[in-house]
Amino acid sequence: MTTNLPSSTQTSGAFPDPMEWLFGQLHGMFGNKLLDQFRSGHIVKGLDTGIENMKAVWADKIRGNGLKFADVRRGLAGAERLKWPPSWGEFLDLCRPPINVDAALYEAIEQMRKRQHGKDEWSNPAIFWAAAKVGEYDMISQTFLQLKPRFDAALKRVQEGEIKPVPERVPALAAPTASESTREYGRQRLDELNASELVRNVSKGGNIAWARQIIEEEKATGKVPLNKLNIARQAIFNVTGVQA
């Protein structure tokens, strides 16, 4: 029976298909143990659909988790120590370099401060998402010792799932123009100050139903004041990490 796999040295051009190369490397390590783990026996155009589906799923996961070629090679090096082919989750753990929690927390504190000015740079998106789970306000205002247990727990949760790229920060509220009245600007600042407490509470796990209502109102009417809309967006982002 055909293995449905080309040799890792065979290519259709100058470079091999990335998934064919990866699967060829794994097949070289584990032989039929790998094939039997994914083979369905359903052949379409000479290819086993179970194996082809595995390649498609792994390709999506590799892209979704932002793995680089060096990460994949690290995963293959780790797989050489295994007796059985790794599942996707096991392979992902092999690909990811271990994260030192103390170093990651120092980075998160520094970059969350820089993020307020749009100058943050993250060595690993998992560190950002862990900081986002703790909450921007707490990351900036609390001490290292206060943050460490919460950040450590958040980092472990983040690493259990798919890690998305770091999103752009929601734009800061614009400063008032000369044409804005002092009274109107004062009203907007009061709204912002009142809402800032809500945003801080949200970063600690508070309710964001009010923020979602504002977003829905904007979608329905298009008449929500910009400062109010930005506050709602920031609150949702603090909890979910998703821009509304």
Results as ranks from 00 to 15, higher is better:
1 M>R: 11
14 A>F: 12
83 K>Y: 08
235 A>I: 05
121 E>Q: 15
146 Q>N: 11
136 E>D: 13
189 R>S: 11
226 L>K: 15
98 P>C: 04
16 P>W: 03
128 F>K: 03
86 P>H: 02
73 R>S: 13
223 K>F: 03
30 F>R: 00
31 G>D: 06
75 G>A: 11
97 P>R: 14
197 E>A: 15
187 R>T: 09
91 F>T: 01
130 A>R: 00
79 A>T: 04
114 K>Y: 05
206 G>F: 00
40 S>R: 06
121 E>L: 15
158 V>G: 03
193 L>G: 09
59 A>D: 06
21 W>I: 05
20 E>D: 14
139 M>L: 13
122 W>S: 08
101 V>R: 02
214 I>V: 15
104 A>N: 01
187 R>G: 02
86 P>E: 01
168 E>W: 07
157 R>K: 14
204 K>T: 10
162 E>N: 12
40 S>W: 01
216 E>G: 08
32 N>Y: 06
48 D>R: 05
96 R>A: 02
40 S>F: 02
88 W>Y: 07
221 T>F: 05
197 E>Q: 14
3 T>G: 02
120 D>I: 01
195 A>R: 08
170 V>Y: 13
35 L>R: 06
217 E>I: 09
81 R>L: 13
224 V>H: 02
204 K>P: 02
48 D>A: 05
193 L>D: 13
161 G>W: 05
232 A>K: 04
73 R>Y: 06
173 L>N: 06
140 I>R: 14
183 R>D: 07
134 V>M: 04
66 G>E: 01
158 V>M: 02
93 D>L: 12
15 F>C: 06
219 K>N: 13
78 G>D: 03
83 K>Q: 15
102 D>V: 12
117 H>E: 13
5 L>E: 04
80 E>S: 10
48 D>L: 01
88 W>K: 05
40 S>D: 07
121 E>P: 08
182 T>L: 13
31 G>Y: 00
137 Y>L: 07
137 Y>R: 11
45 K>N: 14
172 A>M: 12
86 P>I: 01
121 E>N: 15
211 A>N: 05
144 F>D: 05
104 A>E: 02
206 G>S: 04
193 L>T: 14
86 P>S: 00
215 I>C: 07
113 R>I: 15
135 G>C: 03
233 R>E: 13
222 G>E: 09
140 I>N: 10
114 K>A: 12
71 D>T: 07
20 E>V: 09
53 N>V: 00
206 G>W: 00
164 K>I: 06
45 K>A: 14
215 I>D: 01
184 E>Y: 11
78 G>L: 01
85 P>S: 06
24 G>W: 08
193 L>R: 15
71 D>C: 06
181 S>N: 07
90 E>H: 05
113 R>Q: 15
139 M>A: 03
42 H>Y: 09
237 F>Y: 12
136 E>Y: 11
217 E>Q: 14
71 D>Q: 06
34 L>A: 08
116 Q>I: 08
196 S>I: 11
214 I>Y: 04
131 A>D: 02
141 S>M: 14
210 W>R: 09
